[in-house]
Amino acid sequence: MRTNSRLFALLFIGCSIVLKGQSQELNNNSNKKTEWIIADLLRQKSNTIEISGNPKIVSSPFGDAVSFNGTDDAIFLNELPLQSLQEFTVEMLFKPELNGQFEQRILHIGESKGDRMLLEIRALENNWYFDGYAASGTNKKTLIDEKLIHPLEKWYHVAFIVTSKNRATFVDGKQELREDFPFSPIQTGQTSIGVRMSKINWFKGAIYKIRITQKEVNPKDFIQS
């Protein structure tokens, strides 16, 4: 009896260890992140990265950033970090600048005209307002409010959260908009930084970092700007 009790105890401990390991692996997967320091992308020599124009490395409060001229500067990546994700949070540290186009696409992930996600701004004379865009099947909508303006020529943190049920935008940790939106995962496409995939609506300004997390991130855990 004593031997059987010891054997049962060992089996129980072994199962507990296996289950604990599986739980940790799931937690790690749910917290998986893609993080791009844009200056590092520019420095890389890779077949998966295409550079358009002549984006330049510039200094920022956080480290080396990349300046885009609003005319022909962009970075194209043969990557799809949103593939199959039911929910995600996209964050960016960037500085929109004066004299850019009114409509500017800063980050585009997915298809050029099909399922996709974009971080965009609308630039006025001295201000800008944020636009989080998602297209999922026949559901296509811009999350935007022209009254929520911010001065150009300053560094900002923005975030766009998409779940299977809704979307929300944040600027400097403060929620601006949230609405219901049925979303199905993006399965195909690539990534462009500094312009829409189709090479229209160029961004004028600088970008330091983009981070994509495979879950809805609490604002207290956003990148600290």
Rank of each mutant, 00 (worst) to 15 (best):
27 N>T: 10
29 N>L: 15
18 V>R: 02
204 K>Q: 00
65 A>S: 10
219 P>D: 00
143 L>M: 11
23 S>K: 13
43 R>T: 08
146 E>P: 00
212 I>N: 00
65 A>W: 01
63 G>L: 02
26 L>Y: 10
106 I>S: 01
204 K>T: 07
132 G>Y: 12
125 E>F: 11
168 A>I: 02
35 E>Y: 04
3 T>K: 14
121 I>S: 02
129 Y>I: 05
87 E>L: 00
43 R>A: 13
72 D>G: 04
174 K>Y: 04
166 N>V: 14
183 F>I: 07
11 L>R: 13
146 E>S: 15
122 R>D: 07
134 A>H: 02
34 T>M: 06
46 S>Y: 08
140 K>L: 07
45 K>T: 09
219 P>Q: 03
214 Q>K: 14
130 F>A: 03
147 K>P: 03
93 L>S: 03
118 L>H: 11
187 Q>N: 10
105 R>F: 11
97 E>C: 04
216 E>G: 08
172 D>E: 04
218 N>L: 04
129 Y>W: 11
180 D>R: 09
122 R>L: 09
27 N>V: 15
181 F>M: 13
162 V>I: 14
44 Q>L: 13
211 R>C: 12
159 A>T: 01
24 Q>D: 09
152 L>W: 00
161 I>T: 07
206 A>Q: 15
4 N>Y: 14
153 E>D: 11
205 G>H: 01
45 K>H: 07
95 K>R: 05
214 Q>G: 12
77 L>N: 01
96 P>T: 04
116 R>H: 11
129 Y>R: 03
206 A>T: 04
162 V>K: 15
119 L>W: 12
167 R>Q: 14
114 G>S: 01
42 L>D: 01
95 K>G: 01
170 F>Y: 15
170 F>K: 09
9 A>G: 03
115 D>V: 06
216 E>I: 05
132 G>Q: 07
75 I>G: 00
49 I>R: 06
217 V>T: 11
133 Y>K: 11
218 N>E: 02
225 S>M: 15
151 P>Q: 07
143 L>A: 00
216 E>C: 06
135 A>Q: 13
155 W>H: 07
183 F>D: 00
78 N>S: 12
